[in-house]
Design a protein around this nucleic acid. Structure first.
Lengths: 235, 235
DNA sequence: TATTATTGTCTCAATATGTGACAATAATAG
DNA sequence: CTATTATTGTCACATATTGAGACAATAATA
């Protein structure tokens, strides 16, 4: 622990899209059943952004993850040493060696967008499991992490039309309907099909490919992908 | 220094509006002529937001300042101990007592919007003077603070139409032209007078008062203020 | 071959924005 | 006292964007 910066942590809200709803990854700590966001610490000579990438890489196996920093949480009332103490004890970690973890932390919040299908989540040393949970049906979390999730979601909504959010939550080829479902899941409201389709096509960021014959009794939809040139927008 | 959190700082970009352009406050350090953003540190048992408010209160004398956190800067290459060393020496501060200041810091960026007329800036122990500088004609700054200013400005622009920015940069009563000038200064572009006026009035957030007779040879403009109920929007 | 569910596109209506015109008016010059 | 000047407030029209529904096309099924 001594080669990490004290008092500084990050928490990550990792969004994935499955079927029709948004999910996030949550850790469950050993023996306590407590759930929390995956987080981590920053090494003495490591960029903050790199620390977060490193942590996500370890947990998702993914290499190039879309990340946005959205807020830094610095309230004193987030400090709950008794909770952290219980977590360390439940994992049989030495309280003297890891005493630093009982200190107050200021935490930088990041959200990540990943392709749900590509991920095999990996728990860390303190946690039993890591799994997907629906954003709109979150179980209770420790360390006021609900607040962090809400702020991440608000930030994602706010950024929705200037960043190419869909690009990161969907596989490389997708139907218009799937894209619309991503938007609806993020905004939490239904959108009008024709208006949405017209708008997306008018932006000129989509490329149309072959149709997808999905065995359903109706007209097959086209597949789309984001144009390579769209990557240049606002990054 | 020992009752402050190590490795954590904040930097503040304090915007004011004078006449027709945006300005920010910059500190000049003793004997070096070096310019930087006003910043500070967080006490062990102090909320991050409170620390920033405290710092701004000391420097501007203002009590209720509009503050937005916009980004946290955590790159290793921001660490320049030799620059800090020179600053401390130039102010005859003990390098052993203030050794903590030579460490790497992760800095949380905040921007503030204040009424230019109401402020009498106060320098701190390390600095000779604190003064207003045009945002679009910044002198060279230490610690890569130009980057912080640019990010603050981008964030302010991005928030312009969902937060009542004008409310904080103008006195309580102002003309439509003054309000437009604030928008133009922030966006860095000219806006069409009639469209702007129509838009602002249609939002229903302005209250119209008596006219201002300013001794000029033309029709006198109405004074406006923000409706009290507008305060409820998005805060 | 008719039916079903969904998709892609079009049309018309309703809003919103761009652009210029014009009258109203507070001070000044004559 | 009157004409001039520099704005300001408002309107009118054109253009662009979005809302809302209609409809033909079509892949699988009955």
């Amino acid at each position: 622990m001594e080669n990490y910066l004290p008092h500084i942590a990050y928490d990550s809200v990792i969004f994935g899209f499955s079927g029709e709803r948004l999910k996030i990854l949550l850790l469950e700590y050993h023996n306590t059943g407590w759930l929390a966001l995956p987080g981590g610490f920053v090494k003495q000579d490591e960029n903050l952004d790199d620390a977060v990438h490193r942590g996500l890489q370890e947990r998702t196996g993914l290499d190039k993850i879309y990340l946005e920093q959205f807020h830094t949480f610095g309230n004193v009332n987030r400090h709950q040493p008794e909770v952290m103490k219980t977590i360390l004890e439940a994992s049989a970690f030495s309280l003297t060696e890891y005493a630093l973890l009982l200190d107050r932390f200021i935490s930088v919040g990041y959200y990540a967008l990943i392709d749900y299908e590509k991920v095999k989540p990996q728990p860390d040393a303190l946690s039993d499991s890591i799994d997907w949970y629906f954003v709109d049906e979150l179980p209770p979390l420790i360390f006021k992490h609900e607040e962090i999730v809400q702020k991440a979601l608000a930030s994602l909504q706010f950024n929705l039309d200037r960043k190419l959010v869909g690009m990161n939550l969907l596989p490389s080829k997708f139907t218009m309907k799937e894209l619309q479902q991503v938007y609806e899941a993020i905004l939490g409201e239904k959108l009008r099909r024709t208006t949405f389709q017209r708008k997306m096509l008018s932006l000129g960021i989509l490329e149309r490919h072959e149709k997808r014959f999905n065995g359903k009794a109706h007209k097959a939809p086209y597949l789309y992908s984001f144009r390579a040139s769209s990557f240049a927008i606002d990054r």
